[in-house]
Write a protein that binds this DNA or RNA. Structure first.
Lengths: 216, 216, 216, 216
DNA sequence: TATGAATGAGGTTTCATTCAT
DNA sequence: CATGAATGAAACCTCATTCAT
């Protein structure tokens, strides 16, 4: 019976290894981002996936292996998008503004990514250190930034002598903090940090901060 | 040999409640900062204190109560020092530079504080929300900053129209990130973030970033 | 040697969920009846079952869940037997004597049931309140009694105007007390309450008490 | 200052040993009756008394000693009142009705006593066995009953051949059950067992049950 | 390949009791 | 007499992982 299989089986159903993997990763990403590594429960993840708990161990070996895979996937995604930003057609100032704005937006819209990075830092990046894919994954962003900065210096709109890693760090820090420290900051200062207006306002401050730092 | 200090018995000595409390808090601070809330083990903390495990529950009720106390103490400390910075004698620019520099230094030298705040954010600030002392503890920093900024605007050295919360957030974000994301950032970009030179360099960048943002 | 009984594996054998459950329930029943809810130790129960302690939590969630299951099973059992008494063929007087006698005997022979009910009353019946099965389980006894009483009134051997709940309560109280208060009563009055002779004597008193109450 | 001490110091205050003892006993009675022996907490009792926890151990040695004292006090009280009933002036029927009614009322109004006896039975009366005062305390009730019964038989209103211990047991069982099994019984049968009307109704049934049993 | 059942190690918390002053 | 501080033992429960089918 039933041999008229649908073209797109539900993810995680029988005999779709890649679907099973993706299904587990998606659930695990949400769980680790929400509760942290130690706080996340393998049983909770297992209860939410479409297959059985055994599959987690089958595909990812153990809880740590699962977390490493989740991290890799999260980093791969942001770098993939960054590479496709296509800043070549823009002026150095516009390009830097665009890159900064994108970083801010991406992190705001992908709180899971931010929280996973926090979690990994709490664990001293031991999982990340174990992954070979990581470094190669992340060099691209510096190349993109270096291109823009060089062009800006050449055109005389950016001052010389700045380390692009500093620019990237500033950009990341301001974008990251807005998500990572949202809970404590808004609790302490009773500050709205999630409304569309708050988002747009702070985005503008961040972009301006970066631009003013490189300006002549 | 130290019989000249009868007023301050060694922490953890019998029948020195305040000493026992402080001893537990100190150990717990290190443990929570190192492993996170879920990752920290009450047994590990107990093994390191000068008294018995039972005292943790006697003074702090449970693991969460202990964490709340640790958080409160950590916040209280930074705000106490901030209040004593005495920026009144400095020009607005020097005062802002000093405040920014202090924030950067304090967080660099007190990684425990930074990591505790990360941990609390992973937990959506639920413990902080439970503490009444928190808000009152933290208003002072904004008042200090507001004073400096007003003076700068009045003297014509700062542009008008900036929300001091934005300045504080930028200052905090740049200082915080340098510690919070140290592990992943230096792993990915092979960047030295801990040497005295790296510290001094980045400190300079951060101060300059803030000053350039408020400059006319 | 018992390969003729493949359908009923030994209780507690691996991969026999129902057996494991029954095994745990049996041990827990004895333990709770013997020591009360607070006095019973999960570790003691665990030491006596054929599987590991973890299984208690796997099947019953926690100590309270286990106690609720034990209570349900105990009530279910007495009502099941009561329903099978088949009093229809007897005269009203004989039927009432038989029902009273059965109640007395059942409780005498099932001290565990009596003690579990005592324990539950000490705890204000909170566990019983939590169980939906309880009420439906227990209505049958009143129906049986109502039938007998109606017949007796119709035949003129029982006086009219009695609430059958009162009859049931009297019957239960006299039977229950003989077990529930055995320890204090025999200690205070140095009264034999356990020998076959004492059992038969008191059984006769109880039956007569009930019959005399309903007699015209 | 303060040397004008009030004539009646609050119970449990300094240098009033008997007051301290009574205060502890009163609190402990309520606590043991409410939670059972294992369920009661020494710390809870200590928190409610007017003095310190140390006093519990000072006066009663340990938790069991405290419970024994609570039990003795509870039994002493009911027997003391029983002795003062003064049934001599009444006819045998009236006297038996009065004694039965009193038993029912006393237990209804002193749920703590009933619950303590339940608790002691759960513990197989080991504490009661340890107390020498117990037996002597409790003989009186049988003497009182014996007197009434003898008079009734002599006057021809009671049938002969009944063991008064049986009468006492029936009387006690019916009175006791109404309190001891109130929680489960009313939960299962949705029966009001606490209103003044319910009390009066059941009291009547109980008295009638006893009278009918001894009637010729 | 897939699953519900099973587990040992270790986690947090509570308890009655004693100690130091 | 009186008290708050202190404790070891043991209680309940959870965890990531593996097993049997």
């Amino acid at each position: 019976m039933d041999h008229q299989l649908p073209a797109q089986p539900a993810p995680g159903r029988t005999h779709d290894p890649e679907g099973v993997r993706r299904n587990i990763l998606a659930i695990a990403t949400a769980e680790f981002a929400e509760k942290g590594f130690s706080g996340a429960r393998v049983d909770e993840i297992a209860a939410k996936i479409n297959t059985s708990k055994r599959m987690i161990y089958y595909y990812f070996k153990d809880k740590e292996g699962l977390f490493v895979a989740v991290l890799e996937e999260a980093y791969a995604r942001i770098r993939r998008i960054e590479r496709d930003l296509n800043l070549d057609g823009l002026s150095p100032v516009d390009a830097l503004a665009r890159l900064t704005g994108f970083t801010f937006e991406y992190q705001s819209e992908n709180a899971d990514f931010v929280r996973l990075v926090m979690v990994e830092n709490i664990h001293h990046a031991v999982h990340l250190a174990r992954s070979e894919r990581m470094q190669s994954l992340n060099v691209s962003v510096l190349q993109v930034l270096e291109d823009v900065y060089r062009r800006g210096v050449a055109e005389g709109v950016f001052r010389d002598g700045i380390d692009v890693v500093d620019i990237h760090m500033t950009m990341s820090a301001l974008s990251f903090f807005n998500v990572s420290n949202r809970a404590t900051f808004s609790a302490i200062f009773k500050r709205d940090m999630v409304s569309p207006e708050a988002f747009t306002r702070r985005r503008q401050v961040v972009v301006e901060t970066v631009l003013r730092y490189v300006a002549r």
